[in-house]
Design a protein around this nucleic acid. Structure first.
Lengths: 229, 229
DNA sequence: GTCTATAACGAGATAGAC
DNA sequence: GTCTATCTCGTTATAGAC
């Protein structure tokens, strides 16, 4: 934030950050289901009712943590993309995917919060949507750019999926050929399948040398959409 | 079970089943993190100490639920495969994937238990491995069979992955060409990415007509391994 | 106005005595 | 196996400090 702040506003920002930091610590230790306002307050030497000045409810604290996680992931992905902005789309595709994996390995509990099992009793409000969409929009941008440069040869579109594909491009990927819509959305989900399996231990004794395995898989994902090397 | 049982053994089997049923109910309501032996006991009109005659700890109950879930999923996948055993490998591939999705939609909380975020503080023992491997072994069988019929043209194997691919085939997919190993393991993870995204709500307002979308995606996955239509 | 602290509610879990 | 005393929790009402 580069807005000038008075002392009270600064104190408020700092305490808000301290609450979220402590909540993240508890997330790592006990999981989102057991996140407790009282425990956070206790760890900060505050009384539980004081937290309500900062977060109107436990669910609002959870929502803030979720938005922060999506934004942190989105920022990491966008930064990685900018670093290779001059490369061909296939290279940028892989760079974004590798950044998603890197962020997930560095923040496993926040990854579990946003892409793991839903927290029982919690329903994410619409306010999480913009942050949640960042990585997806970035990948759409890569594919659209490939199309504009003539570097995209998407697979044929099954007639059954034509209407759905056209709705998708109209809704959130204007300028992208509808043939790429279903393969891209599928690749997006599949990317998180690869990351989740590694993170949650399903690759234990199955995949040993994980980075080259991952790069190979996401390169294939890019080709399945029609990105050319 | 077709072993003849005395009255005592039968009662034990029934009570064990009742405990697991009630635990699954709580799993759905509160999540695995909050699964509590006491609450299960209360719901069954038992006292908590009595449960320890059936499950020595909460983690053992969790392990039993996890093995049951893997076995239920594995059985559903194997049954779907048998129903199309005479078809070409690409058809059998899709049938198994569709069965995995169908099972997951029918058992979302058990899916979350085995493929969602890890339960904090719980580490799965080796006893879960055979049940967990069933779907993977089934998919390996489809690909191996395609190879034996000459219906498999796997993508070229990057030199970087040669050693890993040969270890994979030696460890759990003998008779399968190493070129197919990495694409198959990746496809296996990606399948669960597709299912998880649908189940956990990431496709909300993104994918509307989900079954054809899913079939298209898994058909592409099959082709990425080298299965021919 | 902005914040923290006290106390309380209703619900649920837990530990130990019996 | 039962009962009770003591914990936890989210949340609110209220009172007072700055």
């Amino acid at each position: 934030m580069n807005t000038p702040q008075g002392a009270r506003a600064r104190a408020r920002t700092e305490i808000t950050a301290a609450i979220k930091d402590e909540a993240r610590r508890q997330l790592a230790a006990e999981g989102a289901a057991k996140l407790s306002l009282r425990a956070v307050a206790r760890a900060l030497g505050m009384v539980s009712s004081a937290l309500y000045r900062y977060f109107p409810s436990r669910d609002d604290l959870l929502t803030a943590l979720i938005i922060d996680a999506y934004d942190s992931l989105g920022a990491a992905a966008e930064e990685a993309h900018e670093a290779v902005a001059d490369e061909i789309p296939a290279v940028r595709w892989t760079a974004v995917c590798v950044a998603v994996r890197g962020w997930a390995l560095a923040h496993p509990h926040e990854y579990a919060l946003i892409y793991g099992s839903p927290v029982p009793g919690y329903v994410a409000p619409q306010t999480t949507v913009p942050a949640a969409a960042r990585v997806g929009l970035l990948l759409i941008g890569v594919v659209r750019d490939a199309h504009e440069r003539g570097a995209l040869t998407p697979p044929p579109l099954p007639g059954e999926l034509r209407a759905e594909a056209e709705r998708m491009t109209a809704d959130f990927a204007p300028g992208m050929p509808p043939e790429a819509a279903a393969p891209l959305v599928a690749a997006w989900a599949q990317l998180y399948g690869l990351v989740g399996f590694e993170l949650f231990g399903q690759f234990h004794r199955v995949v040993e040398d994980r980075e080259p395995f991952f790069r190979d898989a996401v390169a294939r994902l890019g080709r399945s959409i029609g990105l050319r090397d």
